[in-house]
Amino acid sequence: MAKQLREVYGSVLAELGDSNPDIVVLDADLSGSTKSKLFAEKHPDRFFNMGIAESNMVSTAAGLASVGKIPFVNTFTVFLTTLGLIAARGQVCYGNLNVKFGGAYCGMSDALDGASHHALEDIANMRSLPNMRILVPSDETSTRWATKWAVDNDGPVYLRLSRDVYPDLYPAGTQFELGKGAVVRDGTDVTVIACGLLVHKAMEAAEELAKNGISVRVVDMYSIKPIDTALIERCARETGAIVTAEEHNIYGGLGSAVAEVLAHAGIGAPTEFVGVQDTFTESGKYSELLAKYGIDAAGVKAAVEKVLKRK
């Protein structure tokens, strides 16, 4: 059943807290929204509301990690990866400390609040930090895995989570791996490499394009750092054209990461980038905003058609 990723994350965290006493959870006065509240209700002695003080929250988590705790810090994605960034860089990543970042409202999922609350630079910010690993789940099963992976593996991890309801993509118990992507639909003409919500949009676009005889491969690049270089190279060679799709600025995110791999491998496959085109967004209904900024199936379809002309 389709679920809000934040809801899945919160309940998994609460569940993992039962068996792992080292898990502690911090929030910056948004626990009702981020769903870290689900952990707080079950484990009140290991939940710390830090108030509206993101830097304080992340630095405190660095200290907690240094004495053996596994802290998860939670707030809206945009605040976590801007106001929390100095501590993420200077303490957590520089000190290679075991802090987990839960960015609850990625992309434009906090739609009506507008540009101030949209997170469209977070992957770029977090990707540039040494020691940081970035996971972008796209459904309940991958969110469950990513949250558990963060608990089980030492070091900084950034989980990019959404407020939105995502349809199911993977059967329960699917095995994922850090540094890997998953081919969720095979195809031969072009590969759409997507993450998060855009995996679903890419699947829709692929279905549409199939009617016109275009065979689209869709990759869920759920691990953005480290990224699956072998899979990217293979897709570029086998399909000869690439479209990246993400709910993020076109600079510094998944698209940039894929382009880096292609450039390094010397593969000149034409590439198109679906994402917010380096602009600030606005308030509105989520579906309307996604359509307006081209972060939907129509946007992916147009990019595929464009890239195929360049092939």
């Binding site: 630095s59 405190t60 004495v67 501590a87």
Partner: peptide, 8 residues
């Protein structure tokens, strides 16, 4: 804040 986290 980091010292606070350690103390906590």
């Amino acid at each position: 804040a980091a010292a606070q986290g350690m103390a906590l």
